[in-house]
Design a protein around this nucleic acid. Structure first.
Lengths: 271, 271
DNA sequence: ATGCGCATAAAGGTACGACCATTCCAGAAC
DNA sequence: GTTCTGGAATGGTCGTACCTTTATGCGCAT
């Protein structure tokens, strides 16, 4: 017998639908509102999906779509058998979207380096002015990681990430830290995919003096060295990049027209 | 009779699950791969949900979670009765995540302005060097919009957005354009929420000379004027911001402990 | 031949229900 | 007090049914 055949999709008591938008998008917005209103705090646990769905008068499947959006964006973490929690660490919120952006726009490492060159010297200056003891410690840590990387490309890249992140954090500018760390991460991913190499000694030769300048609170020097570092990195990259780019281009062209779905096993059966 | 009671969740033929991750997250990654491999182009239509679900051997509801993630991030657009399409315009990809980031980190307009001050002069310089005729036209357009805004706060803000966006685009740095336009949008939203006013004449007094400098390809001047513009804006904001901030803080504290779910109407009935 | 209009198919949107795997926790057993 | 254990709660997945919107093609009138 089911419930009633005429269940109305409109007239949601709490989720007022203007009639044009998906429930999911509305739910995401509601969630933003909840954050804005301070109803959720970092680490706090969300109500169970079933309760939330009942609260908003939507199906659990619809609610889950919204929660999944939040989870993929790194806003919440869902744990089986436990519950959903608002993340404490927000540093991953931009990560996935940034990757998509770079993929969609076919962003090149060159463009990214140019962007970094525009801002990182400035951030290095701020870092020199504002770094705390903890920030300095993190910088030192990154240098140590570098030295003990033993040529492992993955370790080198993550040490490099840590170094620059430490500077961002030391700048005490929240959005800059998040945004540029995400940019770095996405960039690192690109570099790893194309398996580019980083010259260990070369990089350290730049990182160490930058760290020292920050320690001594010499903002001008930190900024100048950072600019040199990035300029140098650009020069190295562009040279190697040329070949990589050509190769990748060939790859892409080769499979460009390949259909998304090949012959299927199930579900066809009509045409 | 259903299908078979022992349907195995593992052994997906195409979607290989390591056993720890969600299907949704995996699907999102698959989608990234598809982009990376050039299987999808801007504007191209995705296979129907039912086909995609069959292809990946997952339920449609699971697949929809992944697609919703992409839609909210602005990667694809889903049209009822039609299909899903890869977006042509990628400028909204960071919008929603950026808003969440700022909400989660409780980012202040002051921090954002500091960040802008670090980079926008540099972008203005690039714009002066690289602007095309179209870019200049867009700049002019923004000035016209400004003048015909008639004091409408919303129009003023969107004109301001357009002005700065035009400069970003003129800089010919893709990621910088996307990232900072998104930052601007999120920031504009914050400002609109707190209903802050923008001084029309004041703003125009800065925008016009900047545009002229760009037209004349005077990078130094463009950069300097932009720095002054932002410094000025900062000064104006911080003064007004103080009061706003206090007020918002009170608001938040007032409802901080309010429970997320109140007494419900339906669906309870057990405890 | 052209154009209009309507029926049909196909696509996304939503709801509901069932079941699984994991986790937590309280109460029993020691 | 500690350990064990079973049940309840929770997120994860699947599958089905149905709705609304949209595109399309066919037939009929012009």
């Amino acid at each position: 017998m089911r419930s009633a055949p005429n269940r109305s999709y409109k007239s949601a008591p709490i989720l007022e639908n203007n009639g044009k938008e998906d429930v999911t998008s509305l739910l995401v917005k509601r969630f933003q509102d909840m954050l804005r209103d301070g109803l959720l705090r970092q680490g706090s646990r969300l109500p169970p999906e079933r309760d939330l769905a009942a609260h908003f008068n939507v199906a659990r499947s619809s609610l889950r779509q919204a929660l999944k959006v939040l989870e993929v964006m790194g806003v919440i973490t869902q744990k089986v058998g436990d519950g959903s929690y608002l993340n404490t660490d927000t540093s991953a919120v931009l990560a996935v979207p940034m990757e998509f952006l770079f993929l969609l726009d076919d962003t090149s490492v060159g463009e990214l380096t140019e962007l970094r060159l525009l801002i990182e010297p400035g951030l290095a200056r701020l870092a020199a002015e504002r770094a705390t003891a903890g920030d300095i410690a993190l910088l030192r840590q990154s240098i140590r990681d570098f030295e003990s990387s033993g040529g492992d490309n993955l370790k080198i890249v993550s040490s490099d990430l840590l170094f620059h992140r430490a500077i961002f954090q030391a700048s005490k500018n929240g959005p800059a830290t998040s945004v540029f760390h995400s940019i770095h991460r996405a960039m690192a991913k690109m570099i790893l995919v194309t398996s580019q190499l980083v010259d260990l000694e070369h990089t350290l030769a730049f990182h160490k003096p930058i760290m020292q300048a920050i320690e001594r609170r010499d903002g001008d020097r930190a900024a100048r060295l950072m600019a040199e570092h990035l300029t140098d990195a650009t020069a190295l990259l562009t040279r190697e990049q040329e070949h990589q780019h050509q190769r990748l281009l060939q790859d892409r062209i080769a499979r460009e027209r390949r259909p998304l779905l090949r012959g299927k096993t199930a579900s066809s059966g009509k045409n």
